[in-house]
Amino acid sequence: MNVHILAIMGFKTKIDLDVFKPNLPSTLLKHPRFSSLLVDLAIYNVETADKFVEDYILNLSKTSIDKSMPLWDLHILNVNTSMAESVGIFRIHHSLGDGISLMSLFLASTALVLVKDSETPIKGPITSTSENNPRRKVFNEHGFESKNIEKGITGKKNNLPVKIRVRSILFINIRPSPGIQALADMMEKNTKAKWGNWLGFVILPLSIGLRDDPLDDIREAKAMCDRKRHSLEALCSSGVAGFVFKFFGIKPASSLFLRLFTSTTLAFPNVVGPLEEIGFYGHPLAYLAATTYGGQANELMVSMQSYMNKMSVVLSVDENTIPDPHQLCDDIIESLKFIKNSVVEKGLAK
């Protein structure tokens, strides 16, 4: 699986290259997985904003990192978007580490019963090249300030089909030491923090229906996630994948993962981010978003990334299946606002 991670960083100021570039050798490039000669940064200056960044990321997802070079690169877009004054795109091959590993670096500088989900508008036909199709990344962020929004799903006619199966792959950190750890601890030998790819996965059924209380969906999903996290499903899925790779080779292991992704409707990665404001070499961060491409056979990936009191939602979609990802992203944001408003109204949070 030729998977690449994209960390999309919005900055509150324009990026000063005379400050940014000289600091890389003394921070990021000291890490053994990222050590290399600093050749150049990809730098772009344009007047218009959001669409340019979105199209740039789309075109980036059509390419792979040259395997003869270090498996990461950094792109700096000094463009004034609706959410930031400039954007940095850090592309890393997934073989260098998983989200927990990379977040620690960033802060320092089951069910194998593979029945298929129902055919729905967000699950298109799978071909032999589906996992390599370019993905448009649509992202938005949502703060926790309270807003009044229009009520009401009660009373609407339910035209949803019966017996519909929609499931998500949920990635689980299987390290004995949970959460984001200090980079120095992760690089030590025999540590519980463990740098690298230490992920298992679980299959999460999604409830489809109209509820009078939107918090019922949250309670049901949380109960299901808690059961899955405390079960052996994630450890077993990781163990089975490792067993297949060790004894049968990379092609059967890749086929196993491909079948897993093509049998489900969406993937749902998420990583907890910094609670306090951070910056790169004097450039304060406005938002942080993350996603992946390559080896992604799902037509839809929904990534969540927290930063301070905000959460970024990133959709990675195959436009052949989901031609209007902006509408889907807006719908998700409105749903989150509706849930938040319900929590505030019930006095469960301020």
Results as ranks from 00 to 15, higher is better:
Asn2His: 09
Val3Trp: 11
Leu6Val: 12
Ala7Ile: 15
Gly10Asp: 07
Gly10Lys: 05
Lys12Val: 00
Ile15Gly: 03
Asp18Gln: 12
Asp18Met: 12
Pro22Met: 01
Leu24Trp: 06
Pro25Asp: 05
Ser26Met: 08
Thr27Asp: 05
Leu28Lys: 05
Phe34Ser: 06
Ser35Gly: 04
Asp40Lys: 14
Leu41Ser: 15
Ala49Pro: 08
Asp50Asn: 09
Lys51Val: 15
Leu58Gly: 01
Asn59Arg: 09
Leu60His: 08
Leu60Cys: 14
Leu60Asn: 14
Ser61Phe: 10
Ser61Ala: 07
Lys62Leu: 04
Thr63Val: 07
Ser68Glu: 05
Trp72Ala: 10
Asp73Ala: 15
Leu74Ala: 07
Ile76Leu: 09
Thr81Met: 06
Ser82Phe: 09
Glu85Pro: 06
Ile89Asn: 13
Phe90Met: 05
Phe90Gly: 03
Arg91Thr: 04
Ile92Tyr: 03
Ile92Pro: 00
Ser95Cys: 07
Leu96Lys: 11
Gly97Tyr: 02
Asp98Cys: 04
Asp98Lys: 03
Asp98Ala: 03
Ile100Pro: 01
Ile100Ser: 07
Met103Gly: 05
Met103Cys: 01
Ser104Met: 07
Ser104Gly: 07
Leu105Asn: 03
Phe106Asn: 03
Ser109Ile: 09
Ser109Arg: 06
Leu112Ser: 06
Leu112Thr: 07
Val113Phe: 06
Val115Ser: 14
Thr120Pro: 01
Lys123Ser: 10
Gly124Ser: 05
Ile126His: 13
Ser128Val: 10
Ser130Trp: 05
Glu131Val: 00
Asn132Trp: 00
Asn132Phe: 00
Val138Gln: 08
Asn140Trp: 01
Gly143Val: 05
Ile149His: 02
Gly152Glu: 12
Ile153Asp: 12
Val162Gln: 11
Val166Arg: 10
Leu170Ser: 14
Phe171Tyr: 10
Phe171Asn: 13
Ile172Pro: 05
Asn173Val: 10
Pro176Ala: 08
Ala184Phe: 06
Ala184Pro: 00
Met187Pro: 04
Gly200Cys: 11
Val202Tyr: 05
Leu206Thr: 03
Gly209Glu: 01
Asp212Tyr: 02
Pro214Ile: 02
Pro214Lys: 04
Asp216Asn: 09
Ala221Arg: 15
Asp226Trp: 00
Asp226Arg: 00
His230Phe: 13
Ser231Trp: 10
Glu233Lys: 08
Leu235Thr: 09
Cys236Ile: 13
Ser237Thr: 07
Ser238Asp: 14
Val240Phe: 12
Val244Cys: 06
Lys246Ser: 14
Phe248Glu: 00
Lys251Gln: 06
Pro252Gly: 04
Ser254Gln: 10
Leu256Phe: 11
Leu258Pro: 02
Leu258Arg: 13
Arg259Pro: 00
Thr262Glu: 15
Thr264Val: 15
Thr264Leu: 15
Thr265Ile: 07
Ala267Thr: 15
Phe268Asn: 15
Glu277Asn: 11
Gly282Asp: 11
Pro284His: 13
Leu285Trp: 09
Leu288Met: 12
Ala290His: 14
Thr291Met: 12
Gly295Pro: 05
Asn298Lys: 09
Glu299Lys: 02
Leu300Lys: 00
Ser306Arg: 08
Tyr307Pro: 01
Met311Trp: 08
Met311His: 06
Ser312Lys: 05
Val314Glu: 11
Val314Ser: 13
Leu315Thr: 03
Leu315Cys: 02
Ser316Leu: 11
Asp318His: 08
Asn320Cys: 03
Pro325Arg: 02
Pro325Thr: 01
Cys329Lys: 11
Glu334Arg: 11
Phe338Asp: 09
Val343Glu: 09
Glu345Cys: 03
Lys346Pro: 00
Ala349Gln: 11
